[in-house]
Simulated scan of single mutants.
Amino acid sequence: MHITLPAANGDRVSYRLVGRPVEPNKSARFSRIAYAAAHVVADPIAMTNPWSRPAVDWDRTMAFRHHLWRLGFRIAEAMDTSQRGMGFDWASARELIRRSIGEAKTVPGADLASGAGTDHLAPAAAKTLDDVIGAYEEQFAFIEDEGGKAIMMASRALAAVAKGPDDYARVYDRMLSQASGKVILHWLGDMFDPALKGYWGSNDFDTALDTVVAIIERHADKVEGIKISLLDAEKEVLLRDRLPEGVVMFTGDDFNYPELIAGDGRRHSHALLGIFDAIAPVANAALAKLAEGDKAGYDALMAPTVPLSRKIFEAPTEYYKAGIVFMAWLNGHQDHFTMVGGMQSARGICHYADVFRLSDQAGLLADPDLAIARMKTLLAMAGI
């Protein structure tokens, strides 16, 4: 099968599909905790004002969560992959969390954790740390009242108000001390959200690391783990090696996840990854191999997904959500390539052509005929 795709230099290149769709192992047991941060499916008919009034296709959004649960993944709900802070507001996230927690109760063994942030508080409106704490408390309370587990997301409002590490310590100490259950922390780098530059009160990594570790040590009984998303394997390992007993590392490194999940022979990372939304069938098969002790099989499956992930998460990294939803469309999980906030326009046609090629090479086009037909539709819209 062939398709003509654009190249960055303006040429048109005939591409022959080479990949064979990887079959997931639906009965697999993983030796790593694996959360997939899931996207939302927009409703293009109801979304009459795409930039400011999100509308969600709840049936397709829930169906995608069932797809992930069937493949053995836990779900990280209402995180940045669902466009929190980029077109998807707290009112929509609240409904998403409510529906997902309810849906999980219908699926034996299903698990999820939900993002608690401060995104209903505009950073400019936050004047004090108490404003930030109040915003966190509102979202924590909603998730816990629904019977859910919270992921404490990084806060733009806190980054705007805090004067240094002590201010971060005050907010995190307060929230962790009063949480009803264990919490997952999230260290999100400014490559994902420029408003988070200097998070933890310092632009120096070692200083920020000391702040985070001290907070976790004070609340080790309340912290399930921490997800770090800095796209730097060495920094993740430095934090991983300092975590207290019983607190786990969740890699959020969409560039280096295979090696971090496999580990270094002493320790390994678990996973909370946006890329798992897009590569779930292959990640399932690879994690099954790892659980069986077949490291070579794991590497063989995971390695081709890395160039794809690096393309999807290339700078400007915050627009990675477009590639995630593009792949869901190619693979038939939704009938359109429309995103909340019109975010599909954040990437160009050559980017999508590269994602198409790399998805094929990683064995991630479940139905190549459907994928080709949909790619041709997108190309025609770009005049190709």
Rank of each mutant, 00 (worst) to 15 (best):
H2S: 15
H2N: 15
T4I: 14
G10D: 12
V13Y: 08
S14R: 14
R16K: 13
A28Q: 06
A28Y: 04
F30W: 04
R32A: 02
V40M: 12
V40Q: 10
V41R: 06
M47Q: 15
T48R: 14
D59C: 02
T61K: 04
H66R: 15
L71S: 10
L71V: 05
L71I: 04
I75Q: 05
I75N: 03
A76C: 11
A78Q: 02
S82Y: 01
R84P: 00
G87P: 11
W90E: 13
A93C: 14
S100V: 11
G102I: 09
E103Y: 01
K105H: 10
P108C: 00
G109K: 00
A110D: 05
D111Q: 10
L112C: 09
T118R: 04
H120T: 08
P123W: 07
A125G: 15
A125I: 00
A126Y: 04
L129Y: 03
V132D: 01
I133A: 09
G134A: 05
A135H: 02
I143H: 09
E146M: 14
G147P: 14
G147C: 11
I151V: 15
A154I: 00
S155D: 07
R156N: 10
K163G: 15
G164P: 08
R170H: 12
Y172C: 07
R174T: 15
L176G: 10
L176V: 08
Q178N: 07
V183R: 07
H186K: 00
H186V: 10
H186W: 12
L196W: 07
W200R: 03
G201H: 07
D204V: 13
F205A: 08
T211E: 05
V212L: 15
V213S: 03
I215P: 11
R218K: 15
D221W: 04
V223Q: 08
G225T: 06
S229P: 05
L230D: 04
K235Q: 15
K235E: 09
E236L: 13
L239H: 03
D241Q: 12
D241N: 14
P244E: 04
G246A: 09
F250M: 05
N256E: 11
A262P: 06
H268C: 11
G274A: 15
I275E: 08
F276E: 01
A278K: 03
A280M: 04
N284K: 01
N284F: 02
A285F: 03
A291E: 10
G293W: 10
K295N: 09
K295H: 12
A296H: 08
G297H: 10
D299L: 07
L301N: 11
F313A: 02
A315C: 00
T317Q: 04
K321Q: 14
V325I: 11
A328R: 11
F337G: 08
T338Q: 13
M339I: 07
V340L: 14
V340Q: 08
M343V: 05
R347M: 06
I349C: 03
S359W: 00
L370M: 14
A371R: 06
R374A: 10
K376T: 07
L379V: 01
A382S: 13
A382L: 00
I384V: 08
